[in-house]
Design a protein around this nucleic acid. Structure first.
Lengths: 359, 359
DNA sequence: TTGTATGCGTTATCAC
DNA sequence: GTGATAACGCATACAA
C-alpha cells in the first residue's frame, strides 16, 4: 500500500526480483554493488515486505495456533508462555484462542485458525470429543495435543506429563508423613489428566493397604473456586488428615477452605497438589506440588510440531515428560522461604538452533 | 491446495465468482437454484476459503496484535483474556506476543506483527521509550496503549484506569483502619502506573497530615518475588503497621513475607493493593484491593481500536476507567468466605452488536 | 442472471 | 548477473 517492492527496485535501479534476492539472501546471488543500492533504497523508503503476500506465495504463514480451555488460568498461562517462548525462538508467532472449556467455541477457534492457514496447531482439548476433529482431519494441518488427550483416542500426537506416576508420588509423600485418610480432589470426570491423576492416587492408597474410600474422590473442575468448595465439603463431611488435589489452583482454594474452617495446614490437614505454577511457592504455607517442566514442555511441543510440519507423517507418538516433587510446607515438610521457585517457568533457551526465518 | 474455489465452481456448474457471491452474501445476488448447487458443492467438497488470499485481496486480516510485558503474569493474563473475549465477539483473532519487559523483544514482536499486516495493535509498553515507535509511525497501523502510557507522551491513544485515585482510596482505607505508618511498595520507577500509584499514596498520606516518609517507598518490579523481598526489607528495617502495594502480585509476596517474619496480617500489618486479580480472593487473609474492571477494559479497548481502524484519525483520546475498592480481610475488614469474586474477569458480553465479519 | 479478467505483493522460473 | 513474467487464491468490476 504505502511502499511496495517495485518502488524499492525503481529507486535502486534494478528489478523487483533482485530486491527479493537481497532481502531473502537467495536463492540467487546478487552483485555487491547492486546489493548495496537495494539495501540503501530499502532503508530510505522504509520498505517492509508484506507478510500476507509472502505467506500466500510461500504457502506458509510462520504462525502457530494455540487453543487452551482458559487463558486466564495460571497453569495454561504458564504453558502458553512456554510455548510462546519456544515458538519465538524458531521464528514462529502464536495465534491464541480461548476455548472457554466450551466445545463450540473451541471449534470456532480451530476453524478460524485453519482458515488463516496456520502452519500447525497446539490444542488443549476441552472435555468430551471435540467437534473440530473432522475439520482438522480434512485440513491436513499438523496438530498436537497438549496436557490432555482427546477422549478415547491414543493415536493423536501428544505431549503430556506423567500424571499417574506424579499423582502417586504426591500421595505417597503424604503417606510418608503419616497421613492415612487422604481425600482426592480430582478434576472433571471426563477430562484426561484428571482420571490419570486419580488413578495414581488410587495406586498409592492401594499399595499402602488402605481401603479405597471411593467417597473421598471429588470430581470438580480445575480452578480455585471448585477446589475451595470441594475442600469445604470434604472437610466438614469426612474426617480426613490430608488432601491430594489434581491442580495447584484447586489446592489454593482448598488451603483457603482449611483456614476458614479453623483448621491448620499442614498440622490438621496436609495438602499436596499438581502442576507447580509460580503462585504455589507464595501460598502460606507454600504448596508441596508435582512441578511440571514448563520450559521443556514448550520446547518439546514446538520441536515436535515443527517436525510434523516438514514431515506430516513423522513424529507421531506421545511424549510423556516427568514431573518432580517440590516439597514445601503444605505437606508437613519444612517450609522454605518464599520464592524458592526459579520464577522462570519458560526456562532458558536451549542450545537448539534458534532460527528466525522471518525478517 | 487441497480444494480451491475453482473446484467448487466446476462441481456446481458455475464460475468461481459466483461461489464468492454465495459465500460472502454479495456484493451481487445469485439465483436460488445456483446458490443451492454452490452450497451443496461446498459441503460435499469441504471447501474452506483461504484466509490469506482473502486478506491479501481485502487488505485486512481480521487479526489484532497484543504485546504485553509478561504473558504469565496473572494481571496480564486476565487483561489478555478480556481483550480476547471482546475481540472474538467482533470476529477478530488475537496474535499475542510476550515482550518480556525487554524493549528489544517487544520491538521484535511489534515488527513481526506489523509485517503480518495486523489490523490493529494493543501495546502494554515496557519501561522506557519503546524503540518500535518509528515502525508504528510509518506503518500507519492503528494502535493503542493499555495499562501504561509510553513514557513522556500524552498524545498516544490509551486505555488506563484511575491509578492515582485508586491508590489514594486504597491508602485512605488503611488510614481509616487507624494505620499511620504505611509503607508503599511501588513498581519500577520509570513505569507509568507505578508513579501514578505512588502519587495517590502520597496524596492520602499528605491529606492525613502525616510525614511523607520517603524511605518508605520501595521501587521494585511488579511480581510476587520482588514484593516478597521488598516486604521483608521494609518490615525488618522499619516499624510499619501497614503496606500499600502497587500490584496484587506484590501483595501476595508481601503476605508471605509477613507470615515468615512471624507477624500477622492484618493484626500487625495491614495490606491493600491494586489490580483485583482472581487470586487475591483466595489468599489468607484475602486481599483488599482496587479491582480493575477487566471486562470493561477489554471492551473499551477493542471498541476504540476498531473505531480507529475504520477512521485512523478518530478516537484519539485517553480513556480512564474507574477502579473499585474490594474490601476483604487483609486491611482489617471482615474476611468474606473464599471466592467472593465473580470468577469471571472478562465479564459477560454487553449488548454491543456482536458481529463476526469472518466466515 | 452469469462468465471473464484483472490485481493484491510476493517469490521463483524463465530467458537474456 | 540481471530483467521480465507466471503463479499463489481470492474478490470484484466489467462485459455478456
Amino acid at each position: 500500500m504505502v511502499v511496495r517492492r517495485a518502488d524499492v527496485a525503481r529507486l535502486a535501479g534494478t528489478s523487483p526480483a533482485v530486491v527479493s534476492y537481497v532481502l531473502n539472501g537467495g536463492p540467487r546471488t546478487v552483485a555487491p554493488a547492486t546489493r548495496a543500492r537495494v539495501l540503501a533504497a530499502v532503508e530510505s523508503l522504509g520498505y517492509r515486505p508484506n507478510g500476507v503476500a509472502r505467506s500466500l506465495r510461500m504457502n506458509k504463514t510462520m504462525t502457530l495456533g494455540l487453543v487452551v480451555p482458559d487463558t486466564a488460568n495460571p497453569y495454561f498461562a504458564e504453558l502458553a508462555r512456554a510455548i510462546e517462548e519456544a515458538a519465538f525462538a524458531h521464528g514462529y508467532t502464536l495465534l491464541i484462542g480461548n476455548g472457554a472449556e466450551d466445545d463450540e467455541r473451541q471449534t470456532a477457534y480451530v476453524r478460524t485458525f485453519l482458515q488463516r492457514q496456520i502452519d500447525g496447531l497446539f490444542l488443549v482439548p476441552a472435555h468430551g470429543t471435540p467437534s473440530c476433529l473432522p475439520d482438522l482431519e480434512r485440513a491436513r494441518t499438523p496438530w498436537i495435543t497438549l496436557d490432555r488427550q482427546v477422549a478415547g483416542t491414543t493415536d493423536i500426537p501428544a505431549v503430556l506429563v506423567d500424571n499417574r506416576g506424579g499423582a502417586r508420588t504426591a500421595t505417597e509423600h503424604l503417606l510418608e508423613h503419616g497421613r492415612r485418610r487422604i481425600a482426592c480432589i480430582a478434576g472433571p470426570e471426563d477430562v484426561y489428566p484428571a482420571t490419570d491423576r486419580v488413578a495414581g492416587w488410587r495406586d498409592a492408597i492401594a499399595d499402602a493397604g488402605l481401603p479405597a474410600a471411593e467417597t473421598s474422590v471429588l470430581n470438580v473442575p480445575f480452578g480455585r473456586h471448585p477446589g475451595y468448595v470441594a475442600a469445604r465439603r470434604v472437610l466438614s463431611e469426612r474426617i480426613v488428615d490430608a488432601i491430594f488435589t489434581a491442580s495447584d489452583e484447586q489446592a489454593l482454594g482448598a488451603l483457603r477452605a482449611v483456614t476458614e474452617l479453623g483448621l491448620r495446614c499442614p498440622d490438621d490437614v496436609a495438602i499436596t497438589s499438581f502442576d507447580g505454577i509460580a503462585a504455589a511457592a507464595y501460598a502460606t504455607p507454600a504448596l508441596t506440588t508435582m512441578s511440571q517442566p514448563f520450559g521443556e514442555l514448550g520446547r518439546v511441543a514446538v520441536s515436535r510440531l515443527l517436525t510434523r510440519i516438514t514431515d506430516p507423517e513423522g513424529d507421531t507418538g506421545i511424549s510423556v515428560l516427568p514431573v518432580q516433587l517440590t516439597a514445601r510446607g503444605s505437606c508437613g515438610c519444612p517450609d522454605p522461604p518464599g520464592g524458592d521457585s526459579n520464577d522462570d517457568p519458560a526456562g532458558a533457551a536451549t542450545s537448539e538452533e534458534a532460527e528466525r526465518a522471518d525478517t
